[in-house]
Simulated assay, not measured.
Amino acid sequence: MAMMTGQQQPTVSNGQVLARLSMLRDEIVRRRALAFEPRPSGARGPAWERLLGELRTPIEHWQAAHRPRVVEPLHGPSRPVMLLPGFGTHPARMKPLARALQDAGHRVSDWGLGFNFGPSEERFDRLCERVVTMARKEGEPLVLVGWSLGGIFAREVARAHPESVRLVITMGSPFSGDRRANNAWRAYQLIAGHSVDSPPIGRDMAVKPPVPTVALWSPRDGIISPRSACGRKGERDLAVPMRCTHLGFAAHPDVAAMVNRLIDAW
């Protein structure tokens, strides 16, 4: 008789395989339907010319990096800062901004959740736990800087744990107005697997967190409607226009200088 070594591996029947394939097929069909929902007549994203303008992001960065620039010294105290990436991006995309803030004397960390493929209750709870733990470790509340969807996360964390957040800075984040006033909502629904109208977090995105909140927005944004990223009075404390693409928020030197200035002011 042959002897078995180690643990016996559980077998999967043909019926279980077929059931899993059926579930996978149903999920693909469901997400495809989400991705091809019609846009409401009142919702408008940036025009296609602006969307194509996003391709200029590397050129913009190169031109800005080669301009003469005066490095502004840190006037206020060093602050703990957490950077939250945009939808579909990794914290590595925000390294230029992180370096600029570190050069100014701030202590910078990323959100610790890897790629941002949309919210879930579990991911949001993990982020809240990380923010609260870091604020306790630092001995002071954090500055949260969120790019695009990362800014929505930042606003919601500040709403849930205002004692752990000093300041929220959003960069091209669609927190105001119609949730389909952008050119990314179909991709969001396909990847995140839920409607923009029924997210696990941020059901009242336009409600201002009970901490100072600044919205950086750009009239050249090709993905998010500038009005959605700018917000209205009462939805944020301050709105600052920038001259960059949506993809440029994460690395443009002018954005980094403004973020430094805002942290310094608060």
Rank of each mutant, 00 (worst) to 15 (best):
residue 2 A to H: 11
residue 5 T to E: 09
residue 7 Q to C: 00
residue 10 P to N: 06
residue 10 P to L: 12
residue 12 V to L: 12
residue 13 S to Q: 10
residue 15 G to I: 11
residue 19 A to R: 13
residue 21 L to H: 11
residue 24 L to T: 06
residue 26 D to W: 09
residue 28 I to M: 13
residue 28 I to C: 08
residue 29 V to K: 12
residue 29 V to L: 14
residue 31 R to M: 08
residue 31 R to W: 09
residue 34 L to K: 11
residue 38 P to L: 05
residue 39 R to W: 06
residue 44 R to I: 07
residue 50 R to K: 15
residue 52 L to M: 15
residue 55 L to F: 12
residue 55 L to I: 04
residue 56 R to C: 06
residue 57 T to D: 10
residue 62 W to Y: 04
residue 64 A to Q: 09
residue 64 A to E: 11
residue 65 A to Y: 00
residue 66 H to W: 07
residue 69 R to F: 02
residue 72 E to D: 04
residue 73 P to Y: 01
residue 75 H to S: 14
residue 76 G to Q: 02
residue 79 R to D: 02
residue 84 L to E: 07
residue 85 P to M: 08
residue 88 G to C: 03
residue 93 R to K: 10
residue 97 L to M: 15
residue 97 L to F: 02
residue 100 A to Y: 07
residue 101 L to S: 09
residue 102 Q to K: 08
residue 103 D to T: 09
residue 107 R to W: 08
residue 109 S to Q: 13
residue 109 S to G: 09
residue 109 S to E: 14
residue 115 F to T: 07
residue 116 N to M: 05
residue 116 N to E: 12
residue 116 N to K: 08
residue 119 P to E: 04
residue 119 P to N: 05
residue 119 P to M: 02
residue 122 E to F: 04
residue 123 R to N: 04
residue 125 D to F: 01
residue 125 D to N: 05
residue 127 L to M: 12
residue 130 R to Q: 14
residue 132 V to R: 10
residue 133 T to K: 14
residue 136 R to K: 14
residue 137 K to W: 08
residue 142 L to Q: 04
residue 143 V to G: 07
residue 144 L to A: 02
residue 145 V to P: 03
residue 148 S to M: 08
residue 152 I to F: 01
residue 153 F to Q: 00
residue 155 R to I: 01
residue 156 E to Y: 02
residue 159 R to Y: 03
residue 161 H to A: 06
residue 162 P to G: 09
residue 163 E to M: 05
residue 163 E to V: 00
residue 164 S to A: 15
residue 166 R to M: 11
residue 167 L to T: 10
residue 168 V to C: 08
residue 170 T to F: 07
residue 172 G to A: 01
residue 172 G to C: 07
residue 173 S to C: 14
residue 174 P to R: 11
residue 176 S to N: 03
residue 177 G to L: 07
residue 178 D to W: 06
residue 178 D to I: 02
residue 187 A to F: 10
residue 188 Y to T: 04
residue 190 L to I: 09
residue 193 G to Y: 01
residue 194 H to Y: 13
residue 198 S to Q: 15
residue 200 P to Y: 05
residue 203 R to K: 08
residue 204 D to I: 02
residue 206 A to K: 10
residue 209 P to K: 06
residue 210 P to I: 06
residue 212 P to K: 06
residue 216 L to S: 13
residue 218 S to V: 09
residue 222 G to S: 11
residue 224 I to H: 01
residue 225 S to M: 13
residue 225 S to A: 15
residue 228 S to H: 09
residue 229 A to E: 13
residue 230 C to Q: 15
residue 231 G to L: 13
residue 231 G to P: 13
residue 232 R to V: 14
residue 233 K to R: 13
residue 234 G to M: 12
residue 234 G to H: 14
residue 235 E to M: 10
residue 245 T to V: 05
residue 247 L to E: 04
residue 248 G to E: 03
residue 251 A to M: 14
residue 258 M to N: 02
residue 259 V to Y: 03
residue 259 V to G: 11
residue 262 L to T: 12
